[in-house]
Design a protein around this nucleic acid. Sequence first.
DNA 1: GCGTTATTTATGACTGGTCAGTTAGTTTTG
DNA 2: CAAAACTAACTGACCAGTCATAAATAACGC
Lengths: 201, 201
Amino acid sequence: MKKRRPEARPAEILAAALTLFSERGFAATRLEDVAARAGLSKAAIYLYFADKSALLAAIVEAAVQTNIATVRERLGPPTGPVAPHLRTLLATIATILRTTAFPDLMKLIIAESRAQPEIGRLYLDRVIGSAFPLVQSLIARGVETGEFRRIDPAMTVRSLVAPMLLAALWRSVFEPIGAEPLDIDALAAHHADLIIRGLAP
Amino acid sequence: MKKRRPEARPAEILAAALTLFSERGFAATRLEDVAARAGLSKAAIYLYFADKSALLAAIVEAAVQTNIATVRERLGPPTGPVAPHLRTLLATIATILRTTAFPDLMKLIIAESRAQPEIGRLYLDRVIGSAFPLVQSLIARGVETGEFRRIDPAMTVRSLVAPMLLAALWRSVFEPIGAEPLDIDALAAHHADLIIRGLAP
DNA sequence: GCGTTATTTATGACTGGTCAGTTAGTTTTG
DNA sequence: CAAAACTAACTGACCAGTCATAAATAACGC
């Protein structure tokens, strides 16, 4: 029954921590509860992680890595017209926001970035520093080929992805306190449409 | 020299609290430090506010009220073509985000909405519940007069304002940990342009 | 004006509860 | 039996909120 699987411990602890941090916030979550949920004692956590912050850092690290990989994979090689790529990008992000705990994680990052600057910097490096340039170069190619008018690609990236940030926070901040749900897929499709038309020469 | 001004106390305490909450987060701020910054003892705060949460609620209440008034005033009566109104809206929000502590406040609301649901609900009621419909009806009028194509006004509000949310969080979350500054006014202008072209029939 | 009392504004010291992180010792596994 | 995995119990620091008491100001009587 009770299989020992010590090498699975870190992942189990991380899963328990993500759930509780999301539900109650980082500061308000007791390590003892994380341990209980993972089927361990609090002291055991310290065999695998240096301290409470390391737990959060590991969660963010894992989630960011996984989801950037998903987006990269779904986007595929950047060939042909740019517009369909932009639609796919938003649709993929929308799916992630709808089906994973990523919105809660974003809320955590926003809330804790001052107290735990490494967490914020990790997101800054991986998401902003790696994904933004990728999209930016896509848009720049659209400008070069004449598919789009001559706009600033850097600003356009922000115009393009911002509603997905709004959607994430809607889900993690406002829905839990009683706001009516937002149709994230519809917003993604609507916004992609709007932007692509706005970019036409 | 030392003028007594007991009726100014609440405002002084609020100002001190906003500064410290913004800098270090709500949970991590000691009421004793708020008191010291306001030139009082901790116990004195309890003469004016019921508890720590009431402090946060009062800050949010005041900031939301002031800034919604600013936007309403700068927008003026909704007459003539809609497009200029949308440009003014984004430009006004951009100015607020650039010149006030509102971005820090938004970060606080996001961080504390689970622990202090009243705070989140206040923002939901006042900003989402009051400002969103206002903009939505503006866009709806544009659709009716034929100035815009037939899109969903509710979704378009979100497409329109989302980059201002991104800008606020850029300022309050990422700039403090070393991200390069974002030109919020430029983003507002760029985005207004993009959306208005995207809305053209 | 001027002393006396009432009221408002303020504080220092304390309490009770919380919880991250540690340690000394126990159980499990190979 | 040795090493690895684990835990109960403890410690030390922190801090929101309270309370008994003091200072400042206002109110009043004369």
